[in-house]
């Protein structure tokens, strides 16, 4: 990763949200807001570029490396460009029993991509992820902030159509079972 001086801008609404989160911690402990701010930035930009991470480092008065090391440790952050909608299929234990593999294979066929790849139109990235805390409602996938549970092939088809028509719907924070 090389740092660049390229200007990026956070819109005022995003800056306000970042400042609100920083205020939740005592004076001098603003670094505690880092994980939340990375989520906010990723929801806005789609992924975390070096420019975005450098900007956050300046905002929190910490070294860029402190941001990079966190962004690369936690599996929810993407430091490479992804599709607008990440379909993250849980494949751990109970979801495996209930057919996570079947769901992944179906998505792979439907979108013509393999796990880890992004569709040519830049809308979907498919990922296999570890336990998301929905074991009783398996199989399931997460798309942005949405949980989609009790999945069937038909349900997957319907939600792919839905997200293709409206990719930003993945940050509605809804549970759809």
């Amino acid at each position: 990763m090389t740092s660049t001086e390229k200007n990026i801008e956070f819109p005022q609404s995003i800056l306000d949200e970042c400042n609100r989160v920083i205020q939740l911690f005592p004076e001098g402990k603003q670094k505690s807001a880092l994980l939340r701010i990375l989520h906010i930035a990723q929801a806005h930009f789609g992924w975390l570029s070096v420019e975005v991470m450098d900007y956050i480092a300046r905002m929190l008065h910490i070294q860029p490396i402190e941001v990079y090391e966190v962004a690369t440790f936690y599996s929810m952050y993407d430091t490479k460009k992804t599709g607008k909608v990440k379909l993250e299929v849980c494949q751990t234990g109970p979801c495996m029993i209930e057919g996570a593999e079947r769901i992944i294979t179906h998505i792979e066929k439907r979108l013509g991509i393999k796990v880890g790849e992004t569709t040519k139109d830049g809308i979907f990235t498919l990922k296999g992820v570890e336990c998301l805390g929905a074991c009783g409602y398996a199989p399931m996938l997460q798309a942005g902030e949405n949980f989609h549970e009790h999945l069937t092939e038909e349900k997957v088809d319907a939600l792919i159509d839905e997200y293709r028509a409206n990719p930003t719907a993945n940050y509605m924070g809804m549970i759809n079972d």
């Binding site: 929190l60 090391e69 966190v70 992820v129």
Partner: peptide
């Protein structure tokens, strides 16, 4: 942000301080 290990209490504290 997606780390099982942060359920361990000292890892949780590190994470809450904005660290790995």
């Amino acid at each position: 942000a997606g780390a099982y290990i942060c359920g361990e209490e000292t890892a949780l504290i590190e994470s809450l301080e904005g660290n790995r």
